[in-house]
Design a protein around this nucleic acid. Structure first.
Length: 274
DNA sequence: CATGTTTCCTGACAGC
DNA sequence: TGCTGTCAGGAAACAT
């Protein structure tokens, strides 16, 4: 599942490959639309634009687009892609077989195609034409320790649920929430508002560290994640708790426990995390 | 508003 | 082999 490090890897790969290319035409799948904006809006917004840049905001891929207007002016807009759990954004040649669950194809001036494939359909496509897309919450890689601590003040929800709340921090998903809490030595179900400032500082550092390491390794390939070039990441080899239920903790050898928290599988070491 | 619960969707996997 | 049932999980909608 693509979280911040995976989306960052994908966005960088896409930027390298399609920056300055142009979108000639757009095809969108028929049946139920995996879209936030309407198919007509998306198609109209993308067709005839040039790709200025591809970047990541939270868990979203943002294509910054430029359209030439009739008065010779330039209009900017964004194509925003959320990959959900199983979404992929691939650059391919039109000759390549179109896989099942392909929901959108943008034909590029270079002759290649940008394809959005998403079996489970949790992904979302949308366009924004007014202001620059900023995402729902704050970027975990740049937030200060003070602002980080402030996010959780007075919250009764478990810290893990708060980390997953995209309106607070955006980009942290299930894998990196578990891994960060392990590195910070904090139990996932601790009340967010009751963490000490020292614990929050540790968590802040852990979140940043985990995300940065994961980006360096190209993300975690769990289930079927691959980047824009179809390559797998390697951070799954560094996971200390995620999907390690029953295996010994790498620090104290206590078996890793699993519980369900906020509807998500949650993995932790009962001895190292208090 | 804050928090908890349900829903969407399909592939993978267990059990028979 | 092939059918059925169960489950994961991001985020929005809905309920409390």
């Amino acid at each position: 599942m693509p979280e911040l490090p995976e989306v960052e890897t994908i966005a960088r790969g896409l930027d390298k490959r399609v920056r300055n290319d142009a979108i000639d035409s757009v095809w969108l799948g028929k049946h139920r639309e995996p879209l936030k904006s309407s198919a007509r809006e998306i198609s109209a917004a993308l067709t005839g634009t040039r790709i200025i840049e591809v970047r990541r905001v939270g868990k979203h891929i943002v294509f910054d687009l430029e359209a030439s207007t009739s008065q010779n002016g330039k209009a900017t807009r964004q194509w925003i892609v959320h990959l959900g759990m199983t979404g992929r954004m691939l650059v391919c040649s039109p000759e390549e077989e179109t896989p099942k669950h392909t929901h959108a194809i943008a034909s590029l001036a270079s002759g290649r195609e940008l394809r959005f494939v998403d079996p489970r359909r949790f992904g979302r496509l949308s366009v924004a034409t007014k202001k620059s897309f900023a995402g729902p919450g704050t970027e975990p890689l740049t937030i200060s320790p003070e602002d980080f601590a402030k996010l959780f003040r007075g919250r009764k929800t478990p810290i893990k649920a708060a980390l997953l709340n995209q309106k607070l921090l955006h980009g942290v998903g299930n894998i990196y929430a578990d891994e960060s809490l392990f590195r910070a030595g904090i139990r996932p179900k601790r009340q967010a508002g009751r963490l000490t400032r020292a614990e929050l500082d540790r968590l802040h550092a852990a979140v940043k560290e985990v995300l940065k390491e994961a980006i360096k390794l190209g993300g975690s390939s769990v289930s079927d994640y691959v980047d824009a070039e179809g390559r797998e990441g390697f951070f799954q080899l560094q996971h200390r708790v995620y999907l390690r239920t029953g295996e010994p903790c790498l620090v104290c050898k206590t078996p890793i426990k699993r519980m369900v928290l906020g509807g998500r599988g949650t993995h932790y070491c009962p001895k190292c995390q208090r």
